[in-house]
Computed example of a mutant assay.
Amino acid sequence: MRWLPYGPDATLIECSSLEEAGAVRAVVAAAELPRVVEIVPGARTVLVAAEPGSGVLAEVRSLVEAADLDHPPAGSPREITIDVHYDGDDLDEVARTAGLSTAEVVELHTGAEYTVAFTGFAPGFGYLTGLPEPLRQSRLDTPRTRVPAGSVGLAGEFTGVYPRSSPGGWRLIGRTGTVLFDPRAERPALLSPGDRVRFRSVH
């Protein structure tokens, strides 16, 4: 783990793995330090921003270095269910590559509980961990120039939902009408790091 200054009032913590980054985020979030103004997790990093001149970053470092990162605090995650029509353009190919039927792909995808590891790429896009091993596949060799909003996809160890129309290279297995990002809402993004997510098949 490396601690890098990120301006005068923030620190970037470089972690060895996605799991370690998630544990660091959980430890800092659970402490609810009043002078920490933002925690921004990534795939292998956690950015912690503090109130100017507060000196709380030293406290953050002591907290993290003393923590048992193999058993981070669970907190009180929100539980979110997203209804999905499993009719994505790549569903048949995902099933063929995995050696499964499309019904088995749906069963695996809906049977798992996912955690929002971090957000990015587009406002409201959550990178969800917990994807069953048979469904872990590479991105498309040639990304699509347009993926419709609400498309449910998977790539590598992640699954997620495109909150708006955009280019993308994830394998699409379904679509949802759930709104992932609404800038006019009190809470614009539906998903936040640490949230638990389940997908439910609808017809």
Rank of each mutant, 00 (worst) to 15 (best):
F181G: 03
A21C: 12
S192T: 13
P77S: 06
R139K: 13
T45G: 08
S138C: 07
A189R: 01
A21E: 15
S62L: 07
R196E: 11
A67D: 09
H85E: 00
A31W: 09
E93A: 14
L33Y: 10
P123R: 11
T119P: 15
A30R: 01
A189F: 02
T119L: 05
S76E: 13
S166G: 08
T145H: 08
P77N: 08
S201M: 10
S138A: 15
G55T: 00
L180E: 02
P123G: 10
P193T: 07
G120E: 08
V56F: 04
D83A: 15
P77K: 01
L4W: 09
G55H: 04
G7Y: 06
A117S: 13
G194V: 02
T97G: 04
G160D: 05
E14Y: 05
L100P: 12
G194M: 00
G55D: 03
I82K: 05
V37F: 14
V106N: 03
A49C: 10
W170T: 02
R200M: 02
G174L: 01
S166V: 00
H85N: 09
E20M: 13
E133G: 06
P123K: 10
L172M: 09
V46P: 04
G99V: 10
A26Q: 08
L131E: 12
V24T: 05
G174T: 02
A149M: 10
R164S: 15
P34C: 15
V27C: 05
P72R: 01
E113H: 04
A117F: 01
D92F: 12
P183N: 11
R175Y: 06
S17K: 04
A122P: 14
T11S: 14
A155F: 11
R136P: 06
A103C: 09
A149R: 13
E133L: 11
Y6D: 15
R35F: 08
R200K: 03
L172F: 09
E104D: 04
P52G: 08
A155Q: 11
E32N: 14
R61F: 12
I80Q: 12
L131F: 10
A26C: 04
T110I: 03
R196L: 10
R78E: 14
A95C: 11
A50D: 10
R187E: 15
L63A: 09
S151W: 03
A117E: 07
P132V: 07
G111V: 03
